[in-house]
Nucleic acid binder design. Structure first.
Lengths: 195, 195
DNA sequence: GTTAAAATTGAACAAATGTTCAAAGCGTGT
DNA sequence: ACACGCTTTGAACATTTGTTCAATTTTAAC
């Protein structure tokens, strides 16, 4: 009846995400994108609508990966707090050369864009909230396990963790000489912040 | 002998800085800039060389403002630690509507640009270092005053402060609902981090 | 008043931008 | 074989991009 799609949407999204992540929204041109994802303009616009549309889906794809990583950390560890700590370490020390950028794509988006791209800005904020809520859920779970003091506020701890991740990743981006030993810093943060 | 300059370089730089700060390097066009600083292309290029050149001077202008603000905090307070705390508070809660962006322009630069603009990236990193060194100097001064434990490492404290500033400002950018009470957070950071 | 030097103008440029659309390709049901 | 309908193509479009430069304006010294 119809021609079968040539492209695997997930595969295309991964490539687009990586490029956007590396070069930013304004720093990435459609021509640039066309080469990387190997699609012609017509196909791109038929599939994603616009540059903004593709970026939005890229943000979502990125956040899904992040959530998947968090659940992977949950399954690889024996306790919620250990999972959170592991997540933070893989986030921060993991991307030496593999990831397109040292920084979080959601943070880069929130940093770069203005009200001229209100929808994308909004979506990035929403996804950051989602991550924070996932952190909070794990902190609450830690309380249920008896791993964490019941008097603590999971939401406040999650917010604290977000601030620390944002701060650390940004700092490392600005000081990419490998002199700073991050793992020890993270251990200290968990001691100071949670206990 | 020659025509007198029509433009006050400092005034122009302030306007350019604010625009770049708000919209980013790639998000700002020369036409955009021309309107805001009220100069024609020829004059701009004769004075600043290129879009990159003007951005570089804007970065420097921005950092100078920051340093001036820090010394102002020093003069307005009675101790180095009080100065640092005041600086942090004016940085973070001060820019409700006045500043072009919630975030630090140096951080935005480091977040947005890639090796394609290596010189600008490098300059932003250098200026961030400068600020950090200024923090460290104040921590050392606090030790001389007997305000801070001599066993602490001023450089490590300065780095800690940078991470916290970057984290907090980014977080507030992503959560601009005024729900988070920042002043209390900063007080807590100083208690946890320095003592 | 003339001249020389510097600053400013703005039209113009080539290249790059995001996007469109008519044509062609291709798989499926008849 | 045929035709229907979805997918893909890539040339082309109107703007916008960063930048240049010959012409003009303005100043001050002689």
């Amino acid at each position: 009846m119809s021609k079968t799609m040539r492209y695997d949407r997930q595969d295309v999204l991964k490539k687009a995400t990586d490029l956007y992540w590396q070069k930013g929204f304004h720093g990435t041109s459609m021509r640039n994108l066309q080469d990387v994802i190997d699609m012609r303009p017509g196909s791109i616009y038929a599939t994603f609508g616009s540059k903004e549309g593709l970026y939005k889906e890229s943000l979502q794809h990125y956040a899904e990966q992040g959530m998947a990583r968090l659940t992977a950390c949950s399954e690889a560890t024996s306790s919620p707090l250990a999972a959170l700590k592991m997540f933070m370490k893989t986030l921060i020390s993991g991307n030496c050369a593999a990831a397109p950028s040292d920084m979080c794509m959601l943070v880069k988006t929130v940093s770069e864009l203005t009200e001229e791209n209100a929808e994308l800005l909004c979506e990035a904020k929403r996804l950051l909230h989602m991550m924070e809520n996932a952190f909070a859920a794990l902190f609450a779970q830690a309380q249920s396990c008896g791993e964490l003091d019941e008097a603590k506020d999971p939401a406040a701890l999650a917010r604290y963790m977000q601030v620390q991740i944002m701060g650390l990743r940004t700092y490392l981006r600005a000081n990419n000489d490998g002199k700073v030993k991050v793992d020890k810093l993270i251990d200290e943060l968990f001691e100071k912040g949670l206990v």
